[in-house]
């Protein structure tokens, strides 16, 4: 039992380290990447791992490690943007609906329901198809297809907190309505929102890379992990490692966020397990 707890804590620490390293690498990619990610050098085509190219080169002679590092920027950056967008929109709509109630609540929830009626990935595909490919549209599409789920959860959280004793007590004691909201309801809602977002980041990342894999995301030659897998797909028989590297990067990143999210949820609010998936 003790060993299990220690192992779990070890995993969480590991997850945090991974995320930190990835974040830093992404931010510092231009500084630490050994080569430019776009530098085509056909003489180095499929070069094996060496000091010069720690993970070898791809089919166009580009340094794999550099592409992975720059790819981290795109992946982590786009997911951060999506998470930010969703948090703001979901939070705003959810709290407004939950706190104001009545017609506003009904109207906002109808809008949410319409978005929730679509299968998410298909809708994202359609949006990208119509708005055009490119990372900005991917971010927009994934954000717009995901926010409604958050808005609903935040709304029910807001509703349940609205009637709690301490809020009633605060209102009785004379705090104005807005002040009541800001001081008492928002911090716990925000905390749970962060937990939900962390757990969902893996999902978002997979949609972003998935769209890129299908060719609907970043424009070449910008490196992105999903695109790298797509580029390398024709070489699965001869050079599978070109698929493995970016695939493992996505896998490790998603796993780290899932570990972190699980740990946060277990630590802060076991009851949330029912609200999520």
């Amino acid at each position: 039992m003790m060993l299990e707890n220690m192992a779990r804590r070890g995993l969480v620490v590991f997850a945090c380290l991974v995320i930190l390293v990835l974040g830093l690498s992404a931010a510092a990619a231009p500084l630490i990447a050994p080569h430019s990610p776009d530098e085509v050098d056909l003489s180095q085509k499929f070069a094996p791992a060496s000091l010069e190219h720690p993970l070898g080169c791809d089919h166009l002679g580009r340094d794999v490690l550099s592409r992975l590092l720059y790819g981290a920027r795109v992946s982590m950056g786009s997911v951060a943007a999506i998470a930010g967008f969703i948090l703001v929109l979901g939070f705003a709509v959810g709290v407004t609906a939950g706190f104001l109630g009545g017609k506003v609540d009904s109207a906002l929830m109808r809008v949410c329901d319409v978005f929730l009626t679509f299968p998410t990935f298909i809708l994202a595909m359609f949006m990208v198809g119509v708005l055009g490919t490119g990372i900005v549209n991917v971010i927009l599409a994934v954000s717009l297809t995901h926010w409604a789920w958050y808005a609903r959860i935040i709304r029910s959280l807001a509703l349940s907190l609205k009637n709690r004793e301490y809020v009633l007590a605060a209102r009785v004691s004379g705090s104005g309505r807005m002040k009541t909201a800001w001081l008492h309801i928002l911090p716990p809602i925000f905390a749970q929102l962060v937990i939900l977002a962390t757990l969902d980041i893996g999902h978002m990342m997979m949609h972003v890379s998935g769209l890129s894999f299908l060719g609907l995301g970043v424009a070449p030659p910008t490196p992105e992990w999903g695109v790298m897998i797509s580029d390398a797909r024709q070489f699965v028989w001869t050079h599978p490692e070109l698929i493995m590297y970016p695939g493992l990067m996505i896998f490790i990143t998603v796993m780290a966020f899932n570990l972190l999210g699980d740990a946060m949820r277990d630590a802060l609010d076991p009851a949330l397990q029912e609200a999520a998936h």
Binding site: G202, M205, G210, F213, G226, I250, F251, V254, N258
Partner: peptide, 8 residues
Amino acid sequence: GVSIPNFF
């Protein structure tokens, strides 16, 4: 299983 992207 939940951490592996399906295209990978």
